[in-house]
Design a protein around this nucleic acid. Structure first.
Lengths: 136, 136
DNA sequence: ACAAGAAATTAGAATAATTATAATATTAAA
DNA sequence: TTTAATATTATAATTATTCTAATTTCTTGT
């Protein structure tokens, strides 16, 4: 359980102004034990539900993007038409349950080493992510 | 080079009605040597350019989705806000050049075997895809 | 501490992406 | 053929995302 004050400090330390909106978003995103997978819309609705305060959808977008850039969130590549995000920013992979449209983390150590025997001149690898689609 | 007549047959054999729009889309998608990575918008613009005929954007969506379901196209999971598709429907992986926003195929044999040491009860693996992001 | 200017942030309005459905075209049946 | 059934198209509606004017927060000078 992180206090409002701690979020304010963390935001300031990241040179993000600790606005009421951002603090609310932090409470929803980071006051959790488990990692959290969500879409912008999930988050938008949860803010209203959990904090009672309304934050505009555009601000949710802005904040999520700010947090992404700071490395507090990770974007997960799935070809659903809604973009998914993850509060687990460590290097890891995902199951995507196609039937239930639900994401599940796969720890890095649960995936054997991935060897890419091809390279593109002038480019370096930024990330390697595995997406395992599941069905019933 | 596949003829219009051949596309008509292929569509019929897949129980897809061979409409003028679909034939135009086939010409743009499948009259190529190399595999083709595209977004709906890319395709929409190419149809006008290559065939001179206009097909509505909604029809492009419809057709791409129909082709996906039939297995003639593959959707590629990237977290760009535009969905990418691939005419290469074999099992394979991708580089995504983040700077140039460009996709590059990685043949299956250029990626070592991927071992997933975790499973979800009641669910079976539908696909395993690797996305390697590249930067300068 | 306070005011003024600079910079960042918010949220309404605009745009872009995708889907639903009424109108049209294609096919199947008689 | 003609009609009925079904599939397809494309406009209109909806949903997702971004842009920007108005507002808020911060910084600096006093």
């Amino acid at each position: 359980m992180t206090s409002k004050q701690e979020f304010i400090e963390k935001l300031r330390n990241s040179s993000l102004r600790p606005t009421k909106q951002r603090i609310n978003i932090c409470e929803v995103l980071f006051n959790r034990d488990k990692t959290f997978h969500f879409t912008i819309n999930d988050l938008f609705n949860l803010i209203k539900d959990k904090t009672g305060e309304k934050v505009s959808l555009a601000t949710v977008y802005n904040t999520v993007h700010a947090f992404l850039k700071k490395g507090y969130l990770k974007e997960i590549p799935i070809n659903s038409n809604q973009t998914y995000f993850d509060t687990n920013v460590t290097d890891h992979h995902h199951f995507f349950d196609v039937n239930e449209e639900k994401l599940i983390d796969i720890k890095n150590e649960d995936v054997g080493p991935i060897e890419i025997q091809k390279s593109i001149p002038g480019k370096k690898i930024k990330s390697v992510e595995v997406l395992v689609k599941l069905e019933d």
